[in-house]
Structure formats: C-alpha cells, structure tokens
Simulated scan of single mutants.
Amino acid sequence: MKKVVFDDPHRKKHFAFFNHMNHPHFSITAQVEVTLLLDFIRTNQLPLTYSLVYLLSDAANSVKEFRWRIRNNEVVEHEVAHPSFTVPTENTDVFSFCTVDFRNNLQDFIVEAHKVKTEMMKSPSMEDEPERDDFFFMSAIPWISFTSIQHAMHFHPHDSVPRISWGKFFEQENKTMMPLSVQAHHALVDGRHMGMYFEKVQELFLYPKKYLDF
C-alpha cells in the first residue's frame, strides 16, 4: 500500500469537491456480452459465479483508481484488492458476505472461494474486518436483468469501496448479454476510469482463453 499525492491543482480540486459531498458515489449500468465466456465456462466445466467474480475482480484491479481508498482525507493505493461477494446461506433466505483473497490463477481462486463459501453458508457473516478497505463489494442479482441498481451504504461517514453487481442473462441479437453495474466514489473514480473498467471486462469476456491460465 502506498500514499497517493495529487500534484495537479485541478485534480486536488476535483477530489475535494466530491469528497465533501454527502453522497459522493455514482453508478453506471451497462450490458456486456457473455456469449463466448459462457461457452468457455461450459467447455471447461468451471463454476459460473466464481469465474465471474474472478474476472470482474481482475478487471477492477487493472484500473489503479479502483484500488484507491480514502483514509482520513488522504488517498492510499492498495497493491491488490479482494472480492467480498454475496452467497446464499443454509438456514435463512438472506445472504452472507464471502471474502476471498484474489489470486492470479483462476483454479487456485476457485479452490479457495469454494472453501470460504462453504464456511459462510453454514456460519454467515455480515461484519467487515476492522481497519480493512482493500475490497470490492460484489453481488449477483440473477433473477433480474436490471437496468440500474442502488446500494445501501452509510452516508456519514461514507466509504470508498467500489460496488460491482451483475444480473440475469438475456438474449439480444443472437448474443447473450449480462447487465453489469459499478458504483464508485467520484473523488477517486471518474467517468473515464469507469469506461476503462467496462472495456477491460468486455475484453476478458470476449477472449477468456487468452487471459485465463489453462
């Protein structure tokens, strides 16, 4: 982890402008194509949710602004951020958080994710780890092909962890599409960075064989 210092005067103003807002997060929802990704997952008999979490986290880590966090009005950059995603529980109809260390190998990530998910299904958790913010908060809404989504969060104090959600697949012009929503702190992440993220996600989804270690 390292400290980020804004040398450009306008970047400093941009940070201060949005950081003093009561609700500084903004959200973008778009459709991404998953046709070739789903073919790859079926061919290699991979678990869908873990594969999506891995690729969406990989894309987020590739944009450094998605790894920036605000601490005491200062900005720090994590070397890597880790997915904390929702999973069902055994004894109730609401979710548990499932936090898995991000790994550079999909198969290693799947093994660890399955282990943690099994534990969380039996012993659910809704608590964040104290003093940690190196997460991506992630959730699947597989019942709805949503066009927008709003996340519950504290306004005072607000956090700077990005939220990433995806929804029900749907067919469009002979392609399988998936709604993808990203919410981030505007003092850290601008529209350009959002665009970089969506472009990286689509690249990974179109060419999974090129980027996954098989």
Rank of each mutant, 00 (worst) to 15 (best):
T99Q: 08
V161G: 04
K3H: 06
T92N: 10
E112H: 10
D8S: 04
K117G: 10
H78F: 14
V53Y: 02
P124S: 07
V161E: 07
P83I: 01
R103P: 10
Q202I: 01
P208R: 03
A184Y: 00
T29I: 04
F66H: 01
L56W: 00
V201H: 03
R103F: 12
D108S: 11
F26I: 05
S181F: 00
L188Q: 07
S181W: 00
F15A: 04
T89M: 04
A30K: 06
F205Q: 03
L48I: 14
V75D: 02
P179V: 04
K13Y: 08
P142F: 12
F136R: 00
I110M: 08
N73P: 05
F95R: 08
H185C: 02
R192N: 13
A140D: 08
H186L: 08
V189A: 06
N22L: 12
T43A: 15
D7F: 12
F155N: 13
S62H: 11
E90P: 03
Q107E: 13
F155L: 15
H82Y: 07
P157S: 08
V32I: 15
E171M: 10
N72I: 05
D128C: 03
H10P: 00
A184I: 01
F40H: 09
K122D: 07
L36W: 01
E199I: 00
K175N: 15
V189C: 05
V201G: 03
P162I: 00
S123C: 13
F6C: 06
V75T: 05
K209D: 14
T99S: 12
V87P: 09
V116H: 06
I28Y: 01
D159E: 10
R69H: 11
F169Y: 09
A30G: 09
A59K: 02
L212Q: 01
P162D: 02
F15R: 04
V53A: 04
Q183A: 09
P179S: 04
H186K: 06
L48G: 02
S165G: 09
F85G: 03
D133G: 10
S160Y: 05
R103E: 15
H78P: 05
S57C: 08
Q150A: 14
V189F: 02
F137A: 14
F205R: 01
F135E: 05
N105L: 09
F18K: 09
D7Y: 13
P179L: 02
M196S: 11
F198P: 02
D93V: 05
N22D: 15
H186E: 08
F97I: 10
S181K: 00
A16E: 14
M1C: 10
D101Y: 06
V87C: 11
M120V: 09
W166H: 07
R163I: 00
S145A: 15
G167S: 04
E77W: 06
Q150V: 10
E33V: 03
A16F: 14
K122R: 14
R103C: 14
L56I: 02
T147I: 10
L37N: 07
N72K: 15
F26L: 10
K122F: 02
I110W: 05
T49Q: 10
V75R: 02
Q150W: 06
H151E: 12
M196F: 12
E171I: 11
T118C: 09
L188W: 08
E199W: 00
P179K: 05
G195A: 14
D93N: 11
H20G: 13
F17D: 03
I110A: 06
H193W: 03
V34H: 00
F169G: 03
K64S: 15
